[in-house]
Design a protein around this nucleic acid. Structure first.
Length: 614
RNA sequence: GCGUCCGUAGCUCAAUUGGAUAGAGCAUUUGACUUCGGAUCAAACGGUUGAGGGUUCGAAUCCUUCCGGACGCACCA
């Protein structure tokens, strides 16, 4: 049991014993003592006022004296303004440090948890927004896996729909048969190029159409309802309708989608070929990011399944049908709205395929929880999906959870693939590598390392900086990324933590070469404030991991690691550990060793590697 | 218009989930390597926590009303 909870129980017992009042242990406020005051743990005495058993000073004295007398771990106490500050004996911390095992924490109840993330479209390469999604999902997976749960990392590939057909059509029209091989362009970028190409031609076609008499008539009709309507603004809004009603390219793209749904062999072949190019590109990117999935789902394989569930739900009365044949659900009792689940022409919509996928997942894996890492723009959609799944009685629907996160924005606003205003994932990773290389060479501390180790070093530093940049911020908040200011390598960054780790490794190996036996350190009588700060921080580790798992929030671990590294920096500066006349040498080395272990574990849970020399 | 999320130092973020004098990094200014790694450390500067009201021993945190921002409210995905 954590000392904090232990203390709650003790205080509860004391109150019961001495004052004959009962108070729930959980309701007793116990905190880590604020560093400005002496002590390790603080019991807040104000809540006892309600029990009418005396003033805070008296109660504090009683509790403090009792604890000192009966529990051997306490050394002293002090009461300041209703706060009972308890100081632990040095011995307690020495024992704690000796037994600390930061890399083996286990959850009490083991579960099977599926975590779906990345979820790319197959018509364009990955960008910075995907990276946040991927790193979040990967980190949460690592955290649950670390705690002993069985984790299934799933990736849902959005491989069908009109957007894919746009790329396909553009390739047919303007591609002249070129391929990633012939152009030496990475497959996903190659296909993305044609997606942008489609958009360019479509825009041109749209511009020309706006000069036509037909367009003029449509605008004039709209203007009769709204005399202030400006032509430019109107056509900006009208784009989607133009695509659906008048566009030649739009018509061809829709025809392609229909052919695809009818299993036209030529179309299917083209679709498979282009998807394959994209998958090969993704594969390279995932590999470089050290991302691996246990299971892939493809929407092309689940959307029909969703349809079956909708028809089943209609029979059961979960859904209702409108005269035009479309099928709906009424979610007003959940505070949501009515929602279409099947079009009047019988084709599936967005939620339909998600229902299918949810069922397939539950059918294939007997899991307790199913986590979806998806941006907050889909908060409403996910609420709808989860309530539908519950109403349909899809297994484990109660365990569905939407891990929602904020967008990554540029100073110019939101990233848009169609308009080419995105930060490409591959480019950014390479840029981080280059910065790591330049910085490293400038500092000149890695001379003599072989080429493959250097490559590994730059990769670990560059990727680490990038992952930490995206993970240190709470998922719900949006992130602003300014491409002009590259991601830092000093201060609140992964390289800073990696540097602290490397420094400790170098210290320990030097100690080893001096034949210092630090693994069994001799007892010492008192702790320096910097040593105490490290012990306290280390004692918070276990709870930090549980908290970040519970909240699906890696930023808690990121902030923890940063603080630990900062405390170590202060400690390091205050002591000449390896000096001949240092009586605490072995203790301080062991403390350093435990800090390094914890840092390594923490970074690992974020998907960030450590380095022995940098 | 309705719904969800957000607003903390010039900038980017914290704050032990209601606790003590709101803390870090960046930027600016200053100091620290003949001894364990300067991608570091120490210090200065910087705040009416968007504004008002409420709840209580105690509020950045909970409630409420405004102000400002993002996203959603498609037979698009």
């Amino acid at each position: 049991m954590l000392l904090k909870t232990q203390l709650q129980h003790w205080v509860s017992e004391i109150v019961h014993l001495i004052y004959e009042k009962s108070i729930e242990p959980q309701s007793i406020s116990v905190e880590y003592t604020n560093p400005d005051h002496p002590g390790d743990f603080t019991v807040i005495l104000f809540p006892f006022l309600k029990l009418k058993i005396g003033n805070p000073q008296e109660i504090g004295n009683t509790i403090g004296n009792y604890l000192i007398e009966k529990k051997e771990i306490f050394e002293s106490f002090e009461i300041i303004k209703g706060f009972l500050n308890l100081t632990l004996k040095t011995n307690y911390w020495l024992n704690f440090l000796q037994n600390l095992s930061p890399d083996t924490i286990q959850a009490q109840e083991k579960q099977t948890i599926m975590i779906e993330y990345s979820s790319p479209n197959t018509n364009k390469p990955l960008h910075l927004g995907h990276l946040r999604n991927i790193f979040l999902g990967d980190s949460v997976s690592r955290i649950y896996d670390f705690l002993g749960h069985q984790v299934i990392k799933a990736c849902l590939v959005n491989d069908r729909g009109i957007h894919i057909c746009k790329s396909m059509l553009a390739w047919k029209l303007y591609g002249n048969g070129e391929t990633p091989q012939s152009t030496k362009i990475k497959g996903d970028h190659f296909v993305g190029k044609y997606y942008v190409e489609f958009e360019k031609h479509f825009q041109k076609e749209y511009q020309e159409w706006q000069q036509s008499s037909n367009a003029e008539a449509i605008f004039l009709q709209a203007a009769t309802k709204n005399p202030n309507l400006e032509k430019q603004a109107f056509f900006k809004e009208y784009k989607d309708q133009y695509f659906n009603l008048y566009s030649e390219l739009g018509k061809q793209a829709r025809e392609l989608l229909q052919k695809w749904e009818q299993n036209d062999p030529e179309t299917i072949q083209l679709w498979k070929m282009m998807n394959q190019w994209v998958y090969e590109g993704f594969e390279q990117t995932y590999k470089r990011l050290h991302i691996h999935f246990d299971k892939f789902y493809y929407e092309s394989q689940t959307y029909l399944l969703g349809k079956e569930w909708v028809l089943k739900g209609l029979e059961k009365g979960v859904f209702y049908q409108k005269p035009d044949g479309s099928i709906w659900i009424n979610l007003t009792s959940e505070g949501l709205d009515h929602k279409v689940v099947l079009r009047s022409d019988g084709t599936s919509v967005y939620v339909t395929q998600d229902i299918g996928t949810a069922y397939l997942k539950a059918h294939e894996y007997n899991m307790h929880r199913s986590v979806y890492v998806i941006g907050n723009e889909q908060d409403y959609h996910m609420k709808v999906l989860i309530s539908i799944c519950k109403k349909l009685g899809i297994p484990h629907a109660d365990g569905m959870y939407h891990l929602s996160y904020g967008m990554v924005e540029l100073p110019t606003g939101k990233m848009k693939s169609r308009e080419g205003t995105v930060v490409d994932a591959d480019d950014l990773v390479q840029e981080m590598y280059d910065i790591a290389k330049d910085t490293s060479e400038e500092l000149g501390k890695t001379e003599g390392l072989p080429a493959d180790e250097l490559h590994n070093l730059y990769e670990t530093l560059g990727l680490g900086a990038l992952k930490y940049f995206l993970l240190k911020i709470e998922p719900t908040k949006k992130i602003l990324f300014d491409p002009k200011e590259s991601i830092n390598f000093t201060g609140n960054t992964a390289p800073f933590i990696q540097y602290t780790y490397a420094r400790i490794q170098s210290l320990l190996s030097k100690a080893d070469s001096m034949n210092i036996q630090w693994k069994n350190f001799a007892d010492i009588t008192s702790l320096h404030s910097t040593e105490k700060a490290l012990c306290v921080q280390l004692s918070k580790w276990e709870n930090t991991v549980f908290l970040s798992a519970e909240q699906y929030n890696p930023s808690i671990i990121a902030n923890y690691a940063l603080e630990l590294a900062q405390f170590y920096g202060t400690f390091y500066q205050n002591h000449k550990i390896l000096a001949d006349d240092n009586p605490k040498k072995d203790f301080q080395l062991f403390l350093s060793y435990q800090v390094a272990r914890t840092l390594k574990t923490a970074l690992n849970l974020l998907g960030i590697g450590v380095i022995n020399r940098m």
